Simulated scan of single mutants.
Amino acid sequence: MTPRPVRVLTALLIATAAATVVVEVLNFWYAPERGVGFAVRTGWALVRTLGWLILIFQVRRARATAKPLSLILTMTTLFAVGRLIVPSSGRPPLPGLISFGVLALLCLTVVVLLHRHPGIDAHLIHQPRRPVLTREGLSLREAPPSDPWVLTARLASFSYSPLMLVPALTAVGTLRHRPEWTLAVILWILAGIAVSYVALLSAYFIGRGSHRARAALTSTTLAVLAFDLPLCGILLGEDGLIRDGAPLVVAAAITGYALRRAAHTPARVAV
């Protein structure tokens, strides 16, 4: 039977996913203008809502990735929804501010429960069983626990690609007034796609204790910041730098901190 704290957490996650949709609908309703940038950011916010459904599944299945995923989802949700609430000029609508406050409270409550509640922590310690070939034949064994800092670095680095593609696609709408930046925007989009493969390969070898993979992901993080932030500032202005650059900076900081902590943790060998 599912423990009561887990059931409460699941209900909060469902409420958070629903609140995210409500806030996005209110933003769309009150938005003074609906250009390309607004459409891209709203689409990304809606797609990211599916992440909360994945988190519900992982909590129910007692997956260790639930903790870092909740941290990444909270960070991206608050930035993505918050940047839709604040208009380019004027004051944000009161209903939007109230709904954002409720959403922020739900997100923070979810993170605190996942990281601090002993009952939920005990629930997430359980590891899934997997088939292992032994001398006696095929049997089920408990999978070795994963380093939570490695999982955090993996998930945080996986967010680089969408956090780059959102401003890059938003910048497409500015090219009719600044066609000389067309090649830069194309390279921006290609870089956003390529970094997903680099993060995937690095994350795989980091899980096996590779020091080179940690160095490669650190270098990739710095390169992503050096490439993305100037383009955000040039093509999207100061507003775009805050709206689109800040989430990437936070994701990079989480990745760097997690890599540093993982470097001091002995690698676990699967048996």
Results as ranks from 00 to 15, higher is better:
D147V: 10
V172C: 03
L190R: 13
V185M: 04
P144A: 13
L151D: 02
L175G: 09
I186R: 15
P148V: 10
S146V: 12
P144F: 14
T174D: 00
L151Y: 05
A156L: 09
L155E: 01
T170A: 07
S161W: 00
S146A: 15
Y197H: 10
L163P: 02
P145N: 14
S146N: 11
A199V: 05
L187N: 15
G173W: 06
G192Y: 00
T220P: 01
E180H: 15
V198T: 10
A199D: 04
V195H: 07
G207W: 12
T170V: 11
W181K: 15
L222S: 12
L169M: 05
L200W: 07
A153C: 08
P167A: 04
A168C: 05
I206A: 02
E142H: 14
W149F: 11
E180Y: 10
V166I: 09
P167D: 01
T152M: 07
P167V: 07
A153D: 05
E180G: 12
V198G: 05
F158H: 09
S161F: 00
V185Y: 11
S161N: 05
A156R: 05
A168Q: 04
L165M: 02
L225C: 13
L222M: 12
A191S: 15
S219Y: 10
A215T: 14
E142G: 10
T182N: 08
A168G: 07
L165E: 00
L151S: 06
Y204A: 09
A203F: 04
